[in-house]
Design a protein around this nucleic acid. Sequence first.
DNA 1: TTGTTTGGTTTCTTTTTTGTAACTATACAC
DNA 2: GTGTATAGTTACAAAAAAGAAACCAAACAA
Lengths: 119, 119
Amino acid sequence: MTETTALGVSPQDLPACPVETTLRLIGNKWEVLVLRDLMPGTKRFGELKQSIGGVSQKVLTAKLREMEADGLVERHVYAEVPPRVEYSLTPLGRSLKPVLDSLEQWGTAYKKKVAAAAR
Amino acid sequence: MTETTALGVSPQDLPACPVETTLRLIGNKWEVLVLRDLMPGTKRFGELKQSIGGVSQKVLTAKLREMEADGLVERHVYAEVPPRVEYSLTPLGRSLKPVLDSLEQWGTAYKKKVAAAAR
DNA sequence: TTGTTTGGTTTCTTTTTTGTAACTATACAC
DNA sequence: GTGTATAGTTACAAAAAAGAAACCAAACAA
């Protein structure tokens, strides 16, 4: 294995359509926002929770676990007290940057149009 | 107005983050799949329902109405019997092509990795 | 002993999304 | 009159996602 990811997925479990395949992994709002906030680098659980904004602890934990299982996110626990847990993207997670970029670019352009139409 | 879209949105109603802004419009799986299937061109309601696969009539109608209200989709009713209703993307909807492309490209690459890991 | 901190888990409730099935309009064919 | 076809709508039910709040562990500080 050349990459540190959990690719133990059966190919036949994936939808035929590549778009649906991608949605299977990041089809949820929170997952996209985790990606957005980890793209610049490592963050602790609390930082992530705050930067995402509006996520409950429960949901954030659940999404991070899913993304870890999917090989998008890495979790590092430091044996300190109080505990420190850092999250970062795996190479597979970082490979989603073009998707994030396209979402950001479209949103920026759209906001510009909306602002122009409001004048 | 230079474009045929419903941009009657208050700019302050949109999230500050452009990624979240985009998600506000296409943050749902069905919306992305409608986009995917209308990207090549006009489709009738029944065709769309079939090509998306697994959507109920109710949900598809609801999503198409939302996307129409958001200015992404156009609806043309032909006064025939039985009725014919055609859906197509507006320029704003078509402007999401780069997003769709990035989703497709990532999905394709991911499937390749998964297939390689399975060998 | 009690309080503090971080990163959770658990339980319960609410909201959102989706599904199912029945019902509709319209005109034409039989 | 009955059946057919398309593109819906409506009412009701179920499932999934999310939110709120309480609880927990561990070590250190006061």
